[in-house]
């Protein structure tokens, strides 16, 4: 594997909520240009880890570096200026705005913020075409179904022109055909030069997309490596895939 400075380096982060330790001493790196995944059973601390890296709550202990720069205490709204964007597991579309307006709003912010309405609209149109939402641009976002709202989450994140994109369970609730579309879209985004870090439940998506996988269980990292390595790890098979099941029983 090629050694390069990691785009994100997480060092020994721990998060305690009062008595509960949600994440305990987790360290990993994200390779620039690749697709890295994080898996784990429900309540493993994936979203907590995610939210710490994205500045939504600071870690109790540990440090997070972005291209060598300490970003542990950066606020959530400072991330798009560092060319980092995220989506939410529970979609947060701007419900009463049209799809176009949702994306225009994003185009106005971040490191490459549009200077005027025309520029913002033009860029939003490009992104809508790229994400396949162009035909629905005048629909109110609350009137769309889950697959399109998931797409909109990505479109809004992309509109800030990130170099690193965090996807939080972007395929949960999609049927197999929609999942295929989502996988294709994520590949395209990655091919355009955006590093991707994703949390996912759907194993098929993780296996086909990720070059590296991190497995969390009870707030601790239990394995790390290529999807094949991770899937064949006996401990991972036990805690994540069920005790006696063979690795090909992967349907979530």
């Amino acid at each position: 594997m090629m050694e390069k400075t990691p785009i994100i380096e997480v060092q020994h982060i721990t998060k305690r909520f009062k008595g509960l330790t949600a994440v305990k001493d987790v360290s990993f790196t994200i390779r620039e240009g690749g697709i890295t995944g994080m898996i784990g059973p429900n309540g493993a601390g994936k979203s907590t880890t995610f939210n710490m890296i994205c500045g939504y709550y600071p870690p109790t202990e540990g440090k997070i570096f972005f291209r060598g720069q300490d970003i542990t205490n950066k606020k959530a709204h400072e991330y798009t200026n560092m060319k980092i964007a995220r989506t939410f597991q529970i979609m947060k579309p701007l419900k009463n705005l049209s799809v176009l307006e949702n994306v225009v709003a994003s185009c106005y912010f971040g490191h490459a913020a549009a200077k005027n309405n025309r520029e913002a609209r033009e860029r939003a149109m490009e992104i809508l075409q790229f994400t396949g939402l162009y035909e629905k641009r005048h629909v109110l976002s609350k009137d769309m179904g889950t697959p399109d709202q998931k797409r909109l989450e990505m479109a809004r994140a992309l509109a800030t022109k990130p170099e690193l994109l965090f996807l939080d369970e972007n395929m949960a609730g999609l049927n197999p055909a929609e999942t295929e579309d989502a996988i294709r879209l994520i590949r395209e985004i990655n091919a355009s030069g955006v590093t991707i870090f994703l949390i996912e439940h759907i194993m098929k998506a993780v296996v086909s997309l990720c070059e590296e996988v991190i497995v969390l269980h009870h707030g601790e990292k239990i394995a790390e490596g290529t999807p094949e390595q991770v899937m064949n790890d006996p401990y991972v098979m036990e805690v994540y895939l069920g005790k006696k099941e063979a690795p090909h029983a992967q349907s979530n």
Binding site: K75, H77, N81, A85, R86, F88, P93, F109, G110, A113
Partner: peptide, 13 residues
């Protein structure tokens, strides 16, 4: 619409 979503695209609420 949503303060978290606002912060995610770089708006200081």
């Amino acid at each position: 619409e949503d303060e978290d979503a606002a912060a995610a695209i770089g708006i200081n609420p």
